[in-house]
């Protein structure tokens, strides 16, 4: 079974890969664990099942989400994005993050099936998988300006 320590590295490496290649923004792990995310926030989640099952999430404030979406779409400053564009972009980041995580762990856990991402907006957002699950949560600094929280909740699946 994968260890929590290695999954933290996997999640961080995957995040850096996605943001560097698809979003064109630099990401580093943030040590500001105590600060709350800007509200209202967006939470994009995507679930997976197989020998390992669970949910990957990315949560950030609206300002951060808009900046990420604008960079991802190569928009010039001043151009405005609609709420649907921002939501779609954050959902797609969750999708690519799980894809990157999956490619790093599939030799150990085998293939996992992935859902379509979903995005919600609100305050104090957190994903949960219930009892018997493990979790990795990390905060990242994006371009040293924005904070986002990444979560990977998981447990052994029925197919193990």
């Amino acid at each position: 079974m994968i260890t929590t320590v290695s999954l933290k590295d996997v999640l961080l490496d995957s995040t850096k890969e996605v943001f560097e290649t698809m979003v064109f923004m630099a990401v580093e792990e943030s040590l500001q664990d105590g600060t709350s995310l800007d509200a209202p926030a967006l939470l994009a989640t995507i679930t997976f099942k197989g020998r390992l099952e669970g949910c990957l999430g990315i949560c950030c404030g609206q300002t951060c989400a808009s900046a990420v979406a604008a960079s991802m779409l190569g928009m010039a400053s001043g151009e405005e994005l609609g709420a649907n564009d921002v939501s779609d972009a954050i959902g797609e980041i969750a999708n690519m993050l799980l894809g990157a995580v999956k490619s790093r762990i599939q030799n150990e856990v085998g293939n996992i099936e992935v859902s379509i991402p979903s995005v919600v907006e609100g305050r104090e957002l957190r994903s949960s998988l219930g009892e018997g699950s493990s979790q990795v949560r990390i905060r990242v600094s994006i371009e040293e300006e924005h904070i986002a929280e990444l979560s990977l909740l998981y447990r052994e699946g029925c197919n193990h």
Partner: peptide
């Protein structure tokens, strides 16, 4: 692609 964002990114 079902994501409009991804269609734009691929086009770009």
């Amino acid at each position: 692609d079902d994501s409009a964002t991804m269609r734009k990114i691929i086009m770009r």
